[in-house]
Design a protein around this nucleic acid. Structure first.
Length: 658
RNA sequence: GCCGGAUUAGCUCAGCUGGUAGAGCAGCGGUUUUGUAAACCGAAGGUCGCGGGUUCAAAUCCUGCAUCCGGCACCA
């Protein structure tokens, strides 16, 4: 007998081997009909699967939040069945649920077309209507291998061959179709419903390895109800409008062109934004005890060989050859340059920790397929710094850095999405003992810095050390590594960095490589998408547009613009012979935070009518107070926070007169 | 780099099964002096990404290349 504890706390006994469905039926037959999954002590089971033991027992319907992943997984199976019905000879491989949906990878010589998605989707709905029973079977490994081989499913057979001999595998039967799967699944296809849509067609390497054949991946999204599906599709549609490439074009921030692939032409407004963020970052670094340097853009290949970069990344470096036959490389990163500066002259333990920063312009010959708007480019600027320190300073420096990073993201309105710890890669320098220490220290540093959850990424570290990655999200939810903190025992060794210790002996410093924005370009892209171009006052490329209603106000408009500029505000003047409606519309679409309207009345009274982006109210203020108010509100958050300027500005912003 | 898709005016896009291009907005010229999200009129603007081929005829069909987009791989 087993004891089951129900959500209401009651306890009942059942026979060994009872299924979740039978338990449901013992409570109410209607419940057994609706049961989609069983949750036992936090684990999910098929309703028809005998329970392995007692515990906290819960019946989930298809609409339960925890059922959604299974619904999506089921949808991927239904898609696979549909594809094999419509396209005989197509092999199935793997098809998991993912955030918001699912995908399945197929092997087929012919490419699927976008039109095929519609017919696959229609067939999926037919399979749901057929209400095929889904049942779990346990097969021996060898039996499963020969079965899948016999029906021409080489990839499935290969997966099972990777399972240790003697182990059993579970196979799910879905009508007449079978798939190797761990489960769990709903009892039948009708439970999945029809709130799904196939969204994307893509290539994907078998087992994620570029040496393997390329499969065809079909992505879909699936939800418990049509309403949720519609809401999701609408969200995506809205999010796509925030794409930094669209906004960059619409707001005239930057452009890219064929002759400089992956390199950005910053236009005046975009460059203003860039400089504003750079100036902010520079203040943050200055305040946090960094010194700023500038190293050469091009250095002899010999140095890159010494650092080890040439071996691993030589092919991805831009190089040139001089007439004397030297091979020079455009710097792909800043570390070796900074070590040269560190090595110049003698360093004492008293100089440590030495935090050496550079807005380092780097060039990398990134693979063509990797380029992506301004997120992934071939010419970019890192807000880079290297902290040379003693081992016993690693922890404190890490904590200090994480605090700085968090304050920057907060000021810039960004939410840290995930922190990951990339561990030793296959191709690396340094002994395993050093890696053991470095990985452990970095993990502890993250914990001590208050990072609650760190996802481990085996094999993804830098060749010289493990790295913490700080990920942000773009408009449609893709994540991008921006901040990083890397612990490096290798480069100081390879590039002979040393300092004089207290006892007069030479010691190797440890290097912390760190960046907060990662690349200024990527960071700005993320900010553009997060704000949808509607930047807070301190960041907006144009902070105020003074717009006239009649040409009688031109003189005063000039004076107003001048008065605002005198307070350090970025001001444009719109004296065009156009209606105020048009001007308001255009500057609103251009995401200018404040429109200062001046008509005949304002000109006579020496006032401006301020209209804030996103509100249709006006504040009518005399010119001097408007200038003071806006200047106060445009103070960057780091400057405002240090208290010198007072913090009174924010309130008056919200008291806009209607 | 790999798989798929796209590429037409400054921008956003239309152009069916081949008959040598069209709209809206912007820009330009004019009229309008206007009160908080699009005033009106007019003229103009295109090697249809680039190269090759099929055809009497190609934006349209075939082919090679480039770039971009969606993924995959890569990311010091």
């Amino acid at each position: 007998m087993i004891d089951l504890i129900f959500p209401d706390g009651s306890k009942r006994q059942y026979d060994d081997g009872v299924t979740g469905k039978a338990v449901a039926a013992s409570i109410a037959p209607s419940l057994a009909k609706r049961a989609a999954l069983i949750k036992l002590d936090g684990e999910l089971y098929d309703v028809d699967r005998p329970l392995p033991g007692g515990g906290h027992f819960e019946i989930l319907t298809r609409d339960a939040r925890e059922s959604l992943e299974t619904l999506r997984h089921d949808a991927s199976h239904i898609m696979a069945e549909a594809v094999q019905e419509l396209f005989p000879g197509t092999q199935v491989t793997i098809g998991p649920s993912i955030e918001d949906g699912f995908y399945y990878d197929f092997a087929r010589a012919e490419p699927f077309s976008l039109d095929d998605l519609a017919s696959i989707e229609a067939r999926m709905k037919a399979i749901v209507d057929r209400d095929e029973a889904i049942s779990r079977e346990v097969w021996s490994r060898d039996e499963a291998i020969s079965h899948f081989k016999s029906i021409g499913e080489a990839y499935k057979a290969e997966i099972i061959e990777g399972i240790p001999a003697g182990e059993d595998v579970s196979v799910y039967r879905q009508g007449g179709w079978k798939d190797l799967c761990r489960g769990p699944h709903f009892p039948s296809t009708k439970f999945v419903g029809k709130a799904f849509k196939l969204t994307k067609l893509a290539g994907a390497y078998w087992r994620g390895d570029h040496r393997n054949p390329m499969l065809q991946r079909i992505y879909g999204t699936a939800w418990a109800s049509e309403e949720e599906l519609a809401a999701h599709l609408h969200r995506i549609e809205e999010a796509e409008k925030r794409d930094h490439r669209k906004i960059g074009k619409a707001m005239d921030l930057f452009h890219l062109q064929e002759e400089a692939k992956g390199m950005i032409f910053w236009h005046p407004k975009g460059w203003t934004l860039y400089r504003t963020v750079e100036a902010y970052m520079r203040r943050k670094l200055d305040a946090d005890g960094y010194v700023e340097v500038k190293a050469p853009q091009i250095m002899d290949r010999v140095l890159w060989e010494k650092s080890g970069h040439w071996e691993k990344f030589g092919k991805a470096m831009f190089t040139c050859e001089t007439e004397e036959g030297e091979v020079l490389a455009v710097k792909p990163m800043n570390c070796p340059g900074h070590v040269q500066i560190f090595n110049h002259g003698q360093k004492s333990y008293r100089d440590l920790p030495l935090r050496m920063a550079e807005f380092g312009a780097c060039h990398r010959y990134e693979p063509s397929g990797a380029l992506h708007g301004i997120f992934r480019v071939r010419a970019f600027t890192q807000d880079d710094a290297h902290i040379f320190c003693r081992e016993d300073q690693i922890e404190a420096e890490s904590t200090k850095f994480v605090k700085l990073l968090e304050s920057v993201y907060r000021d810039c309105g960004l939410e840290l999405h995930a922190v990951k710890l990339a561990l030793r890669p296959e191709l690396r320098f340094g002994t395993d003992e050093v890696w053991d220490i470095a990985e452990k220290k970095l993990e502890r540093a993250a914990k001590n810095a208050g990072i609650a959850e760190v996802e481990l990424l085996p094999g993804e570290g830098a060749f010289y050390g493990p790295k913490l990655e700080f990920h942000l999200r773009d408009a449609i939810g893709r994540t991008w590594q921006c901040g990083t903190l890397q612990l490096d025992y290798v480069l100081p060794e390879r590039l002979d960095a040393e300092y004089v210790a207290e006892d007069g002996g030479k010691q190797r410093p440890v290097m912390l490589h760190r960046a907060i924005c990662g690349s200024m370009e990527r960071f700005l892209g993320v900010m553009i998408e997060n704000y949808a171009g509607a930047f807070p006052l301190w960041l907006a490329p144009v902070q105020v547009t003074v717009a006239t209603i009649t040409s009688d106000a031109d003189d005063f408009a000039h004076r107003a613009a001048q008065a605002l500029r005198a307070k350090g505000l970025r001001v444009e003047l719109d004296l065009r012979n156009e209606k105020i409606n048009l001007k308001v519309r255009e500057h609103s679409l251009a995401k200018v935070p404040v429109i200062a309207v001046v008509g005949r009345r304002e000109a006579e009274e020496g006032k401006v009518a301020l209209r804030r982006l996103g509100s249709d109210g006006q504040e009518i203020l005399d010119l001097a107070s408007a200038a003071n108010l806006l200047a106060m509100q445009a103070i960057p958050p780091d400057v405002a926070a240090n208290g010198v300027w007072g913090a009174g500005g924010a309130d008056s912003a919200s008291s806009a007169g209607q």
